[in-house]
Nucleic acid binder design. Sequence first.
DNA 1: TAAAAAACTTAAGCTGGTTTAAGAAATAAT
DNA 2: ATTATTTCTTAAACCAGCTTAAGTTTTTTA
Lengths: 190, 190
Amino acid sequence: MYPNFIQHLKNHISLTEDDIKVLSTYVKIKSIKKKEFLLKEGQICKGNYFVETGLLRMFYINEKGTEQITQFALENWWLSDYMSLMMQAPSKFYLQTVEDSEIAVIEHQEQEELFKKLPQLERYFRIMMQRAYAASQMRVKYFHDFSKEENYRQFVSLFPKFIQRIPQYMLASYLGITPEYLSELRKKHP
Amino acid sequence: MYPNFIQHLKNHISLTEDDIKVLSTYVKIKSIKKKEFLLKEGQICKGNYFVETGLLRMFYINEKGTEQITQFALENWWLSDYMSLMMQAPSKFYLQTVEDSEIAVIEHQEQEELFKKLPQLERYFRIMMQRAYAASQMRVKYFHDFSKEENYRQFVSLFPKFIQRIPQYMLASYLGITPEYLSELRKKHP
DNA sequence: TAAAAAACTTAAGCTGGTTTAAGAAATAAT
DNA sequence: ATTATTTCTTAAACCAGCTTAAGTTTTTTA
């Protein structure tokens, strides 16, 4: 059952065979084609999503009608609109696959029940949320600290394989620049 | 013992009198004068900090030698450099009181022991970290979405009391603008 | 394999926000 | 109360990154 998912849990908490059976009744895996949506603006976010294989992006549409990507999620990352999930309020975001993906889903409705049966999951998600928040704290720093050009160069040198999986305009959007300006930067520094 | 702190825990998990006694042996409260540091760049972050009363700020110093504030923490918020705390690696941030403050501290060394004695705390911190991360997701959106001027106006209208507790240059730093430009915005839109 | 659609590039003009430098006002210390 | 320090303001020159508009290349679809 979903090798990455189970291994990822086992890296942080201990699970018996029985625990895994319980998990498998609560955690559904979905195979999702490229460019399908898990969430659209205005909908209430219903699940927490783990990328078993593939790639997710989170974005919103600004006043000018252009997509602004706020996050990507690669293999072994959780992603959701946690504000919408917690408050059960309409989301301002879209969640969409960038590639054909296998996504493990914990439905919000069933989460409390699952956590009661497997209380270790509270610890697991405490660690996941702390890790995500820590990454976010660092990202705020880089965002403020570096110019767009420096940000671009850093991203390319840190994630050379990742940038080959996404179109340029998505990288531009994530970096908060126009595709035109990214094109200029690439010419200047190939 | 620290009314805000205990009440805050009780809002999310149940605690017996005995639990509270255990807590009081692990959670120290510190009275800290304005402008003292809980963490400086280069140090390894040693604790998770809860603001009982007062105000904390987190900032770093950029290449130009100017302070860039990344976060504030008011009453009933937790704050730490979670990357430094998790990895026990040198921090790139400073944590400093903005006002005289009472801060409840969970030392990193003792955290695992405390969590073993009070496993409900895993749930409590899972919720706290999820909440912080959710706020951070929204902040990334606002940061991208609004111009500096719109960001300033929104901040003022959302937190009118808060801005009276901090000097203008700290607001400018948090918003990612120069004090000169903030001054211009204030003149334009008092 | 041809046509349509999506993604990327080029270049000129423009703007939101910075820099620099000086002075004014408020707060803290003696 | 006076001085020193910190905070805030003003204004002009400047620049990183955007906009607009057109053209080119790559990918997808029929």
